[in-house]
């Protein structure tokens, strides 16, 4: 008989402390649940939905669902992984994700997750939106084509840097990132390359200038180790 409260994750008992979410408890037990908008330094956000798990027939965000004693949770199962692949496909077709010409390639969580989950095709029709880049800042480039709206930069800049450089505006498929300046240019904000927000983007939107492609192909973070392993060490790619 178990001493502590626990739930079953893909058939294996995972203990948890009161108030822990499914994702946190799983992670503490060394079990990876895919995610993009979740980060250990921030409260759950629940927007990317990659951490979806099946709990008693309902599909819930593991990052936002409190662990419950005795719950039966399915994560790494074909049905859930198929839904995750479809969510990745949605993220790939709504933006412009051209990995070969992206300096975040090999360091990108979206790409790494798609690889691990076996996404071979974006499947749906591409939206090919027109999103100009913002190169106005001396040290940092913004390439909005790759934004997945995880709001990690919004949260990091607000909660850790105390600057609130980023926000989202508009809604639905027209939702997009804006910066804290009337001109709309990053160069007119107080953003700095050593801000926490400058290093937190899981994809290739916020890029420090003059360091791109520095790591050779084959040695990049996700070239050798899958995201399920890397993610358990640390969050930033």
């Amino acid at each position: 008989m178990m001493e502590t409260a626990h739930f079953l994750l893909d058939g294996v008992a995972v203990p948890f402390a009161e108030g822990q979410t499914i994702l946190e408890a799983a992670r503490a037990a060394g079990r990876y649940i895919p995610h993009l908008c979740w980060h250990p330094d921030f409260p759950p956000h629940g927007s990317c939905k990659l951490c979806i798990v099946a709990v008693g027939g309902r599909h819930l965000s593991a990052c936002a669902t409190p662990a419950v004693d005795g719950a039966v949770v399915a994560s790494d199962v074909p049905e859930i992984n198929a839904e995750r692949r479809a969510l990745l496909q949605m993220l790939f077709v709504e933006g412009n994700h051209f990995c070969p010409s992206c300096e975040k390639s090999g360091l990108c969580q979206l790409q790494a997750l798609a690889s691990e989950l076996g996404m071979t095709t974006p499947r749906f029709n591409h939206f090919y939106p027109d999103r100009p880049v913002d190169a106005s800042h001396p040290d940092v480039l913004l390439d909005f084509n790759r934004c997945i709206y995880c709001e990690l930069c919004v949260r990091a800049s607000r909660d850790q840097d105390g600057k609130s450089v980023f926000a989202l505006t508009n809604r639905g498929i027209h939702k997009h990132l804006v910066v804290n300046a009337e001109s709309g240019r990053l160069g007119d904000t107080d953003f700095a390359a050593d801000d926490v927000a400058a290093g937190i983007c899981p994809v290739g939107v916020i890029l420090r200038k003059r360091v791109g492609f520095a790591v050779p192909i084959g040695s990049r973070t996700y070239d050798t180790r899958p995201i399920s392993a890397v993610s358990m060490d640390r969050e930033e790619p």
């Binding site: 927007s47 990317c48 809604r171």
Partner: peptide
């Protein structure tokens, strides 16, 4: 759609 979550937005 408010655009918050991937499945609804896209």
């Amino acid at each position: 759609s408010c655009g918050f979550c991937t499945p609804c937005r896209v």
